[in-house]
């Protein structure tokens, strides 16, 4: 439980740090946990260009790098200096989506272990 709590805090801290760099008027965070994984949803009231959204999605869905996540992943959420680094998150999560919503953008992150049951979450299927 403590380990999961640490992971959630790191995820939250890194993504929140990224959003707050844009000084949003509103930021909404929602967490849904199951035994095998979690879904974190963050809504940012700032408008972002298509290019920025594509870049964010690319970094969050970067190739899984267990050799880096297991070591450098410890720096997730520790960003007091320099810019936030979404690729540190990307190595550690199952899937991410960045979509435009009425009031800004919505970032969905899914994370889980080997027993992760995607049907309990709402990961969109690829057409």
């Amino acid at each position: 439980m403590r380990r999961r709590k640490d992971i959630i805090l790191h995820l939250l801290s890194e993504i929140a740090s990224y959003i707050l760099e844009g000084d949003p008027q509103r930021m909404v965070v929602s967490l849904h946990q199951e035994e095998s994984g979690l879904h974190l949803c963050v809504i940012d009231s700032n408008q972002h260009s298509d290019e920025e959204i594509a870049k964010m999605e690319k970094m969050l869905n970067s190739q899984k790098r267990p050799e880096l996540a297991g070591y450098y992943g410890a720096m997730t959420g520790q960003d007091l200096l320099g810019g936030s680094r979404l690729d540190l998150l990307g190595w550690q999560i199952k899937h991410a989506d960045v979509t435009r919503v009425d009031c800004g953008i919505q970032i969905d992150l899914w994370m889980g272990g080997d027993e992760f049951q995607s049907h309990k979450f709402t990961i969109p299927t690829k057409e």
């Binding site: 267990p66 050799e67 880096l68 996540a69 297991g70 070591y71 450098y72």
Partner: peptide, 10 residues
């Protein structure tokens, strides 16, 4: 309980 590959850089 980690895979060795998670510590290979170390």
């Amino acid at each position: 309980d980690k895979e060795f590959k998670q510590y290979i850089i170390i």
